[in-house]
Design a protein around this nucleic acid. Structure first.
Length: 581
RNA sequence: GCGCCCGUAGCUCAGUUGGAUAGAGCGUCGGGCUUCGAACCCGCAGGUCGCAGGUUCAAUUCCUGCCGGGCGCACCA
C-alpha cells in the first residue's frame, strides 16, 4: 500500500523532471508521515518542501507540480490536497487500506521484515559481564536491549550473530580467586586478611564452601599463589555457569562466547600490537607501550602495556575487535554500561587503526536501573556486594514483565523499575496491557469456535464491510508497523517498538469495547441488507450496531491480523504473546 | 577544569532522525459492565518544550553561550 503511494509520488517527480518543470539534481527520499489531524487525510509527504530550496521555488509551487504530474491519481487516492507551506495531504482509497490486511495475512510472521540490511553481517556483543559474580539488574537491561537489537536487525535483513565476551583474564578475575581463597581459608579456621578491593558479596562465601566440598582442605597445603589459582578456576566456572543459567532463564541465548584469555594465549594480542607498531601507531614512553589513539580523534594516547609488562584491558580489546572484523563482520555493535562511555573514542580509534571506518562500530549505551518498591528506592552497594540480582527480579516479576520494563525507555536514560508495578496484574502495568490485547483476541477466537463461527482470512471475507473509522484506524496502525521496525532497527532503539505496541493495544481495547464482533447471544441475526437500512435511518441515539455474518467475518479477520502484528512485535522484543493469561 | 549524556504536563517518559494547533501512561477529578475476558473503555484538568541568541519557508529537534542534574576524565575493568 505504502509502496504504491510512494511509487506514484516518485513517478510524478520523474515525469516533472522529464517535462523540465523540476530540475531535481539529487532525488529526495519520499517519506510518508501521518497527518496529525484527520481532516488532513491519512498520509502526508513533505517532499515538496524539501525540494523547494534546491528548486528555488516556493514549496507550494513544487507541490502543485507534483500534484499535476500524478498518473491516474483517482486509482489510488480519493483526494490529494496542498496544505499551507507545501504539505501534500493524501486520502488513500479505502480499498487500498483494506489491502493491508491481506498483506499481513500472506506474510504472517514475516510481516514487518525487510531486506534493508542486504545481508550485511553484524555482530551484536552484549552483557559481557565479568564472571566474578551473579548478574544484576543492570546486566538484565543490557541483555534485553541487546537481544531486541539483534532481533530487530535480523528482521531488517542483516545477517546477525550474538556474542558474549568473557573477561577471564586480568586483575578482576585474579581478585575473584584471591577473595574465594580467603573465604576458603576462613572456613578452615584460618584468620587471613581479606584482599583489598576483593569481592565481598555473600555469594563468595558460598563459592568457597563449594570449593571446600569438592577438594576438602587440600588447598591449605599449597603456596598461596596456587591456592588462589585453584580457587579462581573453580569459582570462575561456577559463576560463569550461573551467568549462563540466568541468561537462559531470561530467554537469552548467544551464538558464541568469546574468551579474553584466548586472545592472550593465541598470540592475538601480540600480533595486533606488532601490526600497529609496524604502522607507527605504537610508541614507548616511561617504560610503557602506548597506542597512538590521538591519530584517530581520541583526546589522549592510551597505554596498552604497563611498565611491569602486563597488557591493559585496552590491548585485548583492540585484539578482540580486530578479531571480530577479521571474522568478516561488516558492522560491530557493542552494548555497554553507560559508565563506559568515555571508552568509545578509544575503541573507535582501535577499529580505525585496524583499517576500518569509524562507523563500522556502533556502541549502544545502557544506563543504570534504579529498583523501586512502592515509590521507595532500593539502595544497592556494589562495593559491599549488596545488589539485587537479575535472578531475584525474574523470580519476582517474571521474565516478560522484566524485559518489557527494560525496553520501555531509551536505553541511555536511567530507568526506575518499580517492582510492585511490574508484578501488578492490572491496567497500570503496560506489559499486561499489551499481552492482554493479544490474549483477548485469542479468547475471542475461542468463543467464535465454540459458536461454530470460523475465523477467516481477510481474503475470504468481504473487507468492504469495514467502513467504521475505528476499523480504518486499526488498519492504518497496522500499516505503520514495518516502518516502526525499520526505524527502531536503524536507530538501534527497541523502545520505539515498545511504544508502538502499547498504541496498537490501546486501539484494540478501544475497538473491542465500542464494537461487537459477533452478535450478542440474544440478538436476532439480521442480513447485510437490513444493516444498511438501519444506517440510513440514522436515529438520533446510535443503537447497538447490527452485526451481520459478513461483518462478523470481516471483523474477525481484522482482529486476526491485529493479533498477528502484536505477536510479531512482542516476538522481536523477546516477549511472549500468550493466548490466555 | 575538560569530555559525553540529559532538562518536555504534578510524576515517569515519547516525540517518526527539521514539519502543521507538542503527545502517552501514571496520579487528581468525573463517568461506564444484563454483552465476545472490566487485566478494559470514555471524559475533564494540566505546557514560556531549562534560559538567551543564531541558522531557514519551518526548530522540542541543528549550531553557540549560559543555568541546572548525571556520568566519565587510570599504566582498573
Amino acid at each position: 500500500m505504502r509502496e504504491k503511494v510512494v511509487g506514484a509520488l516518485e513517478g510524478a517527480l520523474h515525469k516533472a523532471r522529464r517535462k523540465g518543470q523540476l530540475k531535481i539534481e539529487s532525488f529526495p527520499m519520499v517519506t510518508l508521515d501521518l497527518p496529525k489531524r484527520p481532516e488532513w487525510g491519512d498520509l502526508a509527504t513533505t517532499v515538496a518542501m524539501s525540494l523547494a530550496s534546491s528548486e528555488q521555488r516556493s514549496p507550494h509551487d513544487v507541490a502543485q507540480i507534483i500534484l499535476e504530474n500524478l498518473d491516474r491519481p483517482e486509482a489510488i487516492f480519493d483526494r490529494v490536497e496542498i496544505a499551507r507551506p507545501g504539505f501534500l495531504n493524501m486520502t488513500v482509497k479505502r480499498e487500498l487500506w483494506l489491502e493491508v490486511l491481506n498483506e499481513i495475512e500472506e506474510q504472517g510472521q514475516a510481516y514487518g521484515r525487510s531486506d534493508l540490511g542486504k545481508g550485511r553481517r553484524v555482530l551484536v556483543e552484549y552483557v559481557s559481564a565479568n564472571p566474578t559474580g551473579p548478574l544484576h539488574v543492570g546486566h538484565g537491561r543490557g541483555a534485553a536491549v541487546g537481544q531486541a537489537i539483534a532481533n530487530l536487525l535480523t528482521a531488517t535483513g542483516y545477517d546477525v550473530a550474538s556474542e558474549y565476551y568473557i573477561n577471564d583474564a586480568g586483575r578482576q578475575i585474579k581478585l575473584l580467586g584471591a577473595s574465594v581463597y580467603a573465604r576458603y581459608q576462613e572456613l578452615h579456621g584460618r584468620r587471613v586478611p581479606f584482599p583489598e578491593d576483593g569481592y565481598r558479596g555473600a555469594y563468595i562465601e558460598a563459592v568457597a564452601a563449594h570449593v571446600r566440598d569438592r577438594v576438602g582442605s587440600t588447598l591449605l597445603e599449597l603456596p598461596v599463589e596456587q591456592g588462589q589459582q585453584r580457587c579462581q578456576d573453580l569459582a570462575y566456572h561456577e559463576l560463569l555457569d550461573g551467568v549462563r543459567q540466568d541468561l537462559q532463564s531470561f530467554g537469552i541465548e548467544f551464538d558464541s562466547w568469546f574468551s579474553e584469555a584466548s586472545l592472550l594465549s593465541s598470540g592475538s594480542v601480540e600480533q595486533v600490537l606488532e601490526d600497529l607498531k609496524r604502522r607507527d601507531l605504537l610508541f614507548e614512553q616511561d617504560g610503557a607501550l602506548w597506542f597512538r589513539a590521538t591519530a584517530f580523534g581520541d583526546e589522549k594516547d592510551r597505554v596498552v602495556r604497563k611498565q611491569e609488562g602486563e597488557y591493559t584491558y585496552l590491548a585485548s580489546d583492540i585484539a578482540y575487535h580486530r578479531d571480530k572484523l577479521l571474522r568478516g563482520y561488516d558492522l560491530l555493535i557493542d552494548v555497554w554500561g553507560a559508565d563506559h562511555h568515555g571508552y568509545i573514542p578509544r575503541m573507535e580509534a582501535a577499529v580505525q587503526a585496524c583499517g576500518h571506518p569509524k562507523d563500522c562500530l556502533r556502541v549502544v549505551l545502557v544506563q543504570m536501573v534504579n529498583l523501586v518498591r512502592g515509590g521507595q528506592k532500593i539502595e544497592m552497594s556494589k562495593r559491599a556486594g549488596e545488589f539485587t540480582t537479575l535472578r531475584e527480579v525474574m523470580d519476582e516479576v517474571g521474565t516478560d514483565a522484566a524485559k518489557f520494563f527494560f525496553l520501555m525507555r531509551r536505553s541511555d536514560t536511567p530507568l526506575d523499575f518499580d517492582l510492585e508495578l511490574a508484578k501488578q496484574q492490572s491496567a497500570e502495568n503496560p506489559v499486561y496491557y499489551v499481552q492482554y490485547a493479544h490474549a483477548r483476541a485469542a479468547s475471542l477466537f475461542r468463543v467464535a469456535e465454540a459458536r461454530g463461527i470460523p475465523v477467516p482470512k481477510p481474503s475470504e471475507t468481504e473487507l468492504g464491510l469495514l467502513t467504521d473509522q475505528d476499523e480504518l484506524g486499526l488498519i492504518r496502525a497496522l500499516s505503520r508497523y514495518p516502518s516502526v521496525v525499520e526505524a527502531s532497527a536503524a536507530a538501534l532503539e527497541p523502545h520505539r517498538l515498545t511504544f508502538y505496541l502499547q498504541e496498537l493495544a490501546a486501539l484494540l481495547h478501544n475497538f473491542y469495547y465500542k464494537h461487537r464482533i459477533m452478535p450478542s447471544t440474544g440478538q436476532v441475526e439480521s442480513s447485510d441488507a437490513e444493516r444498511f437500512v438501519k444506517v440510513d435511518e440514522a436515529p438520533p441515539v446510535r443503537p447497538r450496531e447490527q452485526i451481520t455474518p459478513g461483518l462478523t467475518a470481516a471483523r474477525l479477520a481484522l482482529m486476526r491480523e491485529v493479533q498477528q502484528v502484536i505477536r510479531n512485535g512482542l516476538g522481536l522484543l523477546g516477549i511472549a504473546a500468550p493466548d490466555r493469561m
